Every structure is written in C-alpha cells, then in structure tokens.
Amino acid sequence: MCCRSSVLKYPAVPRREFTHPFCFDTNTSFMTSILRDLKAALFNLSTKQIELCEFDELDRESAKSLSAHWQKPNWWDETDAVERQNQPDYTWNWASFVSNRVLNRPSGKAVCVRSDDGIIQGAMIYELGVKSWLNPIEKTVFVELVATSPANRDILVREPRYRKAGLSLLRYAMIHSVEVGLRGRLSLFPIANQKFYTSVGFEETAQRSDELDVNLYELSTAAATMHLKQMGVLS
C-alpha cells in the first residue's frame, strides 16, 4: 500500500453542515487519551523497520516549511525540479490553509507526523462535522488536505525515506471522528491515487466536484472499525 501521491484539494463550494467539535458521545470520551498518546507507525525504507513517530499540531510557522514558494529550506528542496511541477500540491500554501481553515474555524484541525529528527513526513487539515453523502442524516470528518512529504515519493527522489505517513494520518482522523461521536466516518476528494483510498476502504459517492473533476469518497463506520481493531484501539 503506497500513499506517496495521496494529495487532496478542498472544493470551492462543498455542501456541508457543522456540529460543535466538542460534543463528545458519552461512549467515546475515553478516546481522548488514545488520540493524545497515539503514534504514527511509519515504515523506514532504509532499515526496513517500523518507526513510531509523533503526531504534532501543524501550526502556521511549521506550515511555512511545507510550501515551495514561502521559505527556504522547505519540503521540496531536494526533489526533482521538473517532476515536482506536476505534483498537485506543489503550489499549495500550507500556512495560508492553516490560517483560513483552522485558526478561523473552531471545527478545523491541522496535524502532522514528525520523524525523530523533527522533519515533517506528512501533513493533514480536516474539519469536524461535515454532512455525509452516503447517509445524509449523519456527519463525517472531512479531510480537506493531506499530503506525504515529497521526500517520500518515488517519482521525486531516488531514495524515499518512509512509507505509510498518509495512512497514519487518515487513521488519526478516524480516531478523532470516533472521539467526537462521528463513529470513524471520513470523507474527502482524492485528486490523486484513488486506488489507495479504495484499498483503505473508502467508497466513491455520486457527489462530484466539477472543479476537481473527481467524486467525493467516504469511509464508513464499518471500514473505520476494521482499522481501529488492527491498531488495537477497539477489541
């Protein structure tokens, strides 16, 4: 399973509804400590070993280092100068996304995965309480943006460092979904590597973004439960 090209873009006018992000279900409040102590299980391609890495809040200052045109050094410095122009997230301004979609929204969240050397290996911005398309009476966690580090993509570097940063971030969102009473449901618009999301358990819906030329995908409670059991979060 590879998620090196797993990048998403938020549509211009999505249909959505919000819930308060801290309306915890009484049966899921125990998840708070699990989310806080959760580690990202990344596969180190050099050592062929799993490394447990830290999840961290993606603040505006950290987000600046992910944008190719904001500051030096950044995520893209050591990548192929030609091929990176073709990556959907090359022009993303992560600092602006954090300001507009997280700091100005109580329901917006931003998280990243850092390896032991402090380098960000993947990042994600998501929103709590967005209307489900598979089941309109329910709500989901909508993953607005997610990307693995360019240094982890075969097409950009000769020796990628890690795998599974994208999957780890999605599993983090699943747990947060459970934590706020949304039962693990996620939704997103995959603008690259749709097969990866299908392998994770996402289902394609009929809701389409004309701007992105892709349909909305959703992860059901049943699919999320399988992941949480694999992680040992649920028995």
Score class of each variant (00 low, 15 high):
F24M: 11
L156P: 00
Y217S: 05
N93A: 08
K48S: 15
R158M: 12
Q49V: 08
P21R: 05
I50P: 03
F202W: 06
V102W: 05
R208C: 07
F22V: 07
T26M: 14
A40D: 00
Q71P: 00
C2G: 14
K72R: 09
Q230L: 14
S107N: 15
Y217W: 12
M226Y: 10
E218S: 02
A68Y: 09
L145W: 15
L234M: 11
L134G: 15
E204N: 07
Q207M: 13
R60H: 09
R114W: 05
K195T: 11
K64E: 08
S5Q: 12
Y10F: 12
D213R: 12
R208I: 11
V200T: 02
D77Q: 14
Q49W: 01
D154E: 15
P88D: 06
C23S: 14
V111I: 12
G232Y: 02
T28V: 06
S99N: 11
N135W: 11
E17H: 10
S209L: 02
G232Q: 05
P14K: 06
I50T: 14
R163F: 09
K39M: 09
S62V: 10
P21S: 04
L170V: 01
S107L: 03
F43V: 01
S115L: 00
K39E: 06
E159Y: 14
L145N: 09
A110W: 05
N86Q: 13
N44K: 02
N100L: 13
F55K: 01
Q230I: 09
R60P: 03
S5C: 13
F97T: 04
I175Y: 01
E57L: 10
L66F: 01
N74F: 03
M174S: 03
S199H: 13
H227A: 07
N215I: 05
I155T: 14
R158W: 08
F24Q: 12
A68G: 08
Q71D: 06
N74S: 08
F18Y: 15
G232R: 01
R185Y: 03
P73E: 05
S149E: 00
G181V: 03
Q230K: 14
Y90P: 01
S220A: 05
P190G: 01
G129T: 05
L228H: 04
L169K: 00
R84L: 07
E179F: 15
L45M: 11
N74A: 08
K195L: 12
V146F: 05
F55R: 04
